[in-house]
Amino acid sequence: MSPGDEHDGYGGSGQTRTRLPEGNTGDVHGGARRPARGSRSLLTAVGVVVLLVAAIAFANRGGGDPADSSPSSGTPGTSATAPTGTRPVTGTDGTVPTGYAHDEQGAQSAAANYATALGSTDMFQKGPREALVRAVYAPEVADDLVKRLDASYSPELMASLGLENDGNAPSGLTFVSRTIPVGTKIKEYAEGSATVEVWCTGLVGLAGEDSTKPVTSNWFTLTQKLVWSEGDWRISSSSQIEGPTPVNGDNRASIAGEIAAAVEQYGGFTYAR
């Protein structure tokens, strides 16, 4: 897949619908303006991407596109679900929405919600991380992936992010790790498999008055290969590239206290196509 392909289909006729779930998940949309490419910190480079890099290294070892998949137009067109507020899923597995429709729209909804889950702070703690991986990945890849991720989230990595060994933020600081899908696009679809692109923005950093790793934002596109397994869509492999990235606006970067307060006050969404 070439970088140029990632620019096709975004901002088209389809609209992504969101629904605020019951309860506050602690997610927030917004944050400090994205730093210049040359000064991107280790926190941004690792905090948002480390899970997916580790997962890709394992899950893509088999490589190859699904044998029975066929190209799709990549544009939702008239089949896109109207923003009626209808719940896109019927249940949850822990904190992850589950029970997606066995069709293109269900695959897009699954990919968006899985991107959000895998970009959350839960991925930095051993127990919640294993629960998320088992909820969103196909069973045949989950066991080995859990072991590889446990090794990747080492004390050295946590220290580089300014976190304690257990993944918690130091006293007085709030760790922020959010992935916010902007849109989805079907690349390939077959009865038992789908390839979905998810265009995202992300937030990562430590919010608080004494933070030396402030919350920053970035833009990236995930390509998730899904399989229909045990009555739901599950990830078999995924990859990530940078962008498409819009031009920075003129918004004032919020002070650390404002970001920390927003993390506690604003909940996240269940995404649907």
Rank of each mutant, 00 (worst) to 15 (best):
Q108N: 07
S69V: 08
V227M: 13
M123S: 12
T44V: 08
A59H: 08
G249P: 01
P88Y: 03
S70A: 15
I241E: 12
E6G: 04
S160D: 14
S154P: 03
G106T: 04
S69G: 06
T75L: 08
E209S: 10
N251F: 13
S13K: 15
E188R: 10
A135N: 11
G12N: 07
S2N: 14
P246E: 05
V227C: 06
S217M: 10
V146R: 05
L206S: 04
V49H: 13
Q125A: 15
I255Q: 15
G267T: 01
V176K: 08
E209F: 02
G77H: 03
G243P: 02
G23L: 00
I186E: 09
S73L: 03
S193D: 13
R61L: 05
R40I: 12
N24T: 00
E104V: 09
Y137T: 15
S238K: 08
G202P: 01
F124Q: 06
R87S: 10
D143L: 11
T78I: 04
V49D: 14
S193W: 07
A82T: 04
L51R: 02
Y271M: 10
S211H: 06
N24D: 14
R148I: 09
S73N: 15
V198S: 03
D122P: 05
V227K: 15
M158C: 04
F220Q: 13
T201N: 14
G167N: 04
R178A: 05
V136N: 12
Y153W: 06
F269Q: 08
T75K: 02
E6T: 15
K185A: 07
L173M: 06
A107V: 08
G91M: 04
T201V: 05
L52A: 14
T86Y: 01
A107S: 14
A36W: 01
D65R: 12
G26T: 04
G47N: 03
G23K: 00
L173N: 06
D27Y: 00
D103R: 10
L161I: 04
V48A: 10
L132S: 12
E130C: 12
V96F: 09
V46C: 11
G119E: 08
L52Y: 13
W219C: 15
G127R: 12
A107M: 12
G4W: 10
S229L: 10
L145P: 13
S236K: 10
Y114I: 14
V247F: 00
Q105D: 12
P155Y: 03
R148Y: 03
E209V: 10
R178G: 00
G14N: 06
D150G: 11
T179F: 03
G9A: 07
G9R: 07
N248F: 02
L206R: 11
P21Q: 13
G202N: 06
A135D: 09
S13D: 14
P3E: 13
Q108C: 12
L132M: 09
T212C: 00
P128Q: 03
R252H: 11
A115S: 14
